[in-house]
């Protein structure tokens, strides 16, 4: 059952990374937009986040995700799969 659950979750993740439905990996066609976004520190750079928090004396916010990040999602918080 556990193996089945893991397999299902893996399949979901794989299917997500195969196809982002052309949603957000294309640039905007028009100029009428506001691209303000949270300035996240990306996965793999937690030490950078800690150093920034120490230097600037700020609180770290951590968004933990159970699964499902694809390559685009690890490099750009507003695009790809999370």
């Amino acid at each position: 059952m556990r193996i089945m659950s893991l397999a299902i979750v893996a399949a979901m993740t794989f299917s997500c990374s195969l196809d982002v439905a052309g949603q957000t990996d294309q640039p905007s066609k028009l100029k009428c937009f506001n691209s303000e976004a949270i300035q996240w520190v990306y996965p793999g750079k937690f030490k950078t986040a800690l150093e920034k928090a120490k230097k600037q004396n700020r609180i770290i916010l951590m968004k933990g995700l159970g699964f499902g990040l694809d390559e685009l999602g690890t490099k750009c918080a507003t695009k790809g799969c999370w």
Binding site: T13, V41, R58
Partner: peptide
């Protein structure tokens, strides 16, 4: 005012 960070806490996928 904050330092935001996100990551995969241990499931399948990247990050």
């Amino acid at each position: 005012r904050f330092i935001p960070f996100y990551f995969n806490t241990g499931g399948p996928g990247l990050g």
